[in-house]
Amino acid sequence: MPRYLVVLSRGVAAIALFAMMVLTFVDVIGRYAFNAPVFGVAEMIQFLLAISIFAAMSLASANRGHITVDVLEPALDRVARRPRRLFVRALSILTFALIAAQLGELAYEAWRTDRTTIVLDWPLAGILCACALLALVAFVVELSGYREPDAADGPPEDA
């Protein structure tokens, strides 16, 4: 189950980022070559960014790509390996749960008050709902402890 969720999030994240790249490119070409920029492109990119980030949360989790400090870890592991790991994992799970819950609450609030976006006038609740669901997927993946079998091909994950 978590594997399929990761595959799904992966697809969503990849498509959203691809769309972001193409959209900025087409917008610039349209603006300079045809004097016809895409209307509301900045807002579309904002939504794609949000969607891609929450979709990729579960990837980052499954790739173990999150950034840690790991100083006392080895030393602590000698005395209290299991409790430490459980505690650290519990905090991660709690964080993902909080993010999903917060987004869910904001989505509900946007739906209740019928909010629309500033430029394109799209219903905000739809976008927020998608974000909340993707964050929920990340929470489930984190909870399941699922890790991608091979996440090593490519540069390590940090800036």
């Binding site: 920029p37 509301g40 900045a42 807002e43 500033i118 430029v119």
Partner: peptide, 8 residues
């Protein structure tokens, strides 16, 4: 018209 948030 071109429109968007004032900061942009």
């Amino acid at each position: 018209v071109v429109s968007g948030p004032a900061v942009q």
